[in-house]
């Protein structure tokens, strides 16, 4: 898709900045997210890299140009809500939060450690900016729906965004929520499916087929967009289109690559689950993500 002029919704980047500048900034954030994900999972000795890497570009776009969220702001009426319903991908959420100043970059490397607020799945009482606790698939989507309803009831101008995994769509609760959001005409709710085609044990097709996916969402009353989930201009312009949808909730089915950016992880279901990265694997991954020796040392050792 050749996009029109990229629209920056949240004012994080000057609206008149050239598209190339916007792309460069968001690509930089996505690269930071991927490196940070690898480093924190290496340090933790466990964690889910595959699905964190696949949604890195989506998160970078959301936080970089779409979401009206800011680390210091507390205006409940204006603040958009973002929910990572696929909570196991939280290393990516912590990293994008760190990149934008919601938390300290070094502190966020202390993933899954006793006493650290960066738990193995996001917890809102440890980190208020994650908005709700997730980790039980399907629930984050329902919570996001409740937030969108509450915004409508209180006539808030804000919107709710939620990122779902593809395996997550096998939860019945997701379709309860999908039906409900369309019934209540929640056009302030935008779902993004990180469609990397793989889940814990194998491909979606082997475990439980979810296709025809776009037809399912359409049948449930949603406005559906299919995009390349690694194409930054396409993600941004589609988010913009979704935000101008009336009377229907919108979903972006974002085709992604599991483990994106780390060649030995790409499209490998073995990298979904909670894995222990060796030093060599971590270094190789960071090198593939463009980190030099000094940066690798800082990420893995400091």
């Amino acid at each position: 898709m050749t996009s029109a002029k990229i629209t920056v919704r949240n004012g994080a980047i000057p609206a008149d900045a050239p598209d190339t500048d916007i792309e460069v900034q968001i690509a930089d954030a996505a690269r930071f997210v991927r490196r940070h994900t690898i480093a924190s999972i290496f340090r933790a000795g466990s964690g889910h890299p595959g699905g964190a890497l696949s949604c890195a570009d989506i998160l970078a776009c959301l936080f970089g140009a779409e979401l009206n969220v800011w680390p210091s702001g507390t205006d409940e009426r204006l603040r958009d809500r973002f929910v990572l319903s696929k909570g196991h991908a939280c290393p990516a959420l912590y990293a994008i939060g760190a990149y934008h100043g919601f938390c300290d970059k070094t502190a966020a490397l202390a993933l899954r450690k006793l006493g650290s607020p960066f738990q193995g799945h996001p917890h809102v009482r440890d980190l208020p900016w994650v908005e709700t606790s997730t980790g039980s698939l399907g629930q984050g989507f329902s919570v996001a729906l409740g937030m969108a309803m509450g915004m409508k009831l209180q006539k808030m101008p804000s919107r709710t965004y939620v990122v779902l995994g593809d395996g997550e769509l096998q939860e019945g609760e997701v379709w309860e929520a999908a039906m409900c959001a369309a019934h209540h005409k929640l056009d302030n709710l935008c779902a993004i499916v990180d469609y990397n085609k793989l889940q814990s044990d194998a491909s979606n097709d082997v475990i439980m087929r979810i296709e025809p996916l776009a037809d399912k969402w359409r049948a449930f009353g949603w406005t559906v967009f299919e995009i390349d989930g690694h194409n930054i201009p396409e993600i941004l312009s589609t988010l913009h289109l979704a935000a101008s949808t009336h009377n229907h909730p919108s979903v972006l089915i974002a085709h992604t690559v599991k483990g994106k950016g780390v060649p030995y992880m790409e499209n490998g279901p073995a990298w979904h689950g909670s894995v222990k990265l060796t030093r060599q694997q971590a270094e190789e991954a960071l090198a593939a993500l463009g980190a030099d020796r000094q940066e690798i040392m800082e990420l893995l050792d400091v």
Binding site: V124, S142, V143, G146, G150, Q154, A177, M179
Partner: peptide
């Protein structure tokens, strides 16, 4: 009165979201 249909799981979690935005 918010109608959720016969779908208690979604209703229960959505209550968390409603409370999160001040309802």
């Amino acid at each position: 009165l918010i109608q959720f249909g016969i779908a208690e799981q979604n209703m229960m979690a959505a209550a968390g979201g409603l409370a999160a935005v001040g309802m």
